[in-house]
Design a protein around this nucleic acid. Structure first.
Lengths: 127, 127
DNA sequence: AACCCATACCTCTAAAAATGATGTATGATA
DNA sequence: TATCATACATCATTTTTAGAGGTATGGGTT
């Protein structure tokens, strides 16, 4: 289960906003999510290579003076289409998790009801 | 990254609605999420054992006639508290992923703008 | 001068997790 | 008779993740 290919989707999502290089992609993910998400480089670079192999993104080396060259990635048409699918998959996943996590606890709201439920379970052999 | 312990959270979430046995928990997760989520038994049972070990849930064997006995689990106080934390973590995670995936593509909306962006990237050495 | 930090790419390994198969057992259904 | 649904469980294989390490440059600190 688990939202499959979430990192891939995230990378494509960030690239929607324009072409970026790997190091910056990782920073964006941290910043945009307000540190709720964080991608290790050991995870990001292999992911970028996979995505490029599958032609969801394309890269170009951009030299810099004084600093290491950057490999700038841009989204392909195919990548954009794939991202759309991923967005739908994410929505279904999020809806599913949401509906399970935020399902109202049986005892409607009152502590008293909770107690009754507890006792009932006890009566059935629970503790 | 990835929503850590999502299966654990899901199990606790389902148990909010009342005590259940493993086989039923798996079914609930499938049903409530409208098949968006599915837990393999090879994943669920070890998870239940971990949760019980950590005292987030408690179990009781309930014999049945004709059918295999059931191990019925109920949420503990500690488990309920833990679930609350997990709910918060999920919200932060979902918000993060959501804001990245549904970030408006740079080209405001028109195809023309998209083209301009494309050309601009080209001018910078991209393709 | 020596050191660490930020930038920027990358790989590798050990641990963790997911998948699917296999096992046991019963009753119902086709 | 065979297969499916119930109901528990383990196990091996594969996949994923996290964290460390490696290369290289320039700027700032001690």
């Amino acid at each position: 289960m688990a939202f499959k290919g979430d990192l891939e989707a995230l990378v494509l999502g960030v690239l929607q906003g324009g072409s970026l290089h790997g190091y910056e992609i990782a920073k964006r993910i941290r910043e945009v999510s307000e540190t709720a998400l964080s991608v290790g480089e050991g995870q990001l670079y292999p992911a970028l290579h996979r995505l490029e192999l599958e032609e969801y993104i394309e890269s170009e080396w951009i030299p810099q003076e004084g600093k290491p060259s950057r490999k700038v990635y841009c989204l392909t048409q195919k990548g954009g289409d794939f991202l759309q699918e991923k967005q739908k998959a994410w929505e279904a996943f999020a809806k599913g998790v949401g509906s399970i996590l935020s399902s109202v606890p049986k005892p409607t709201t009152s502590k008293r009801t909770a107690l009754v439920q507890r006792v009932r379970f006890k009566a059935l052999g629970g503790r």
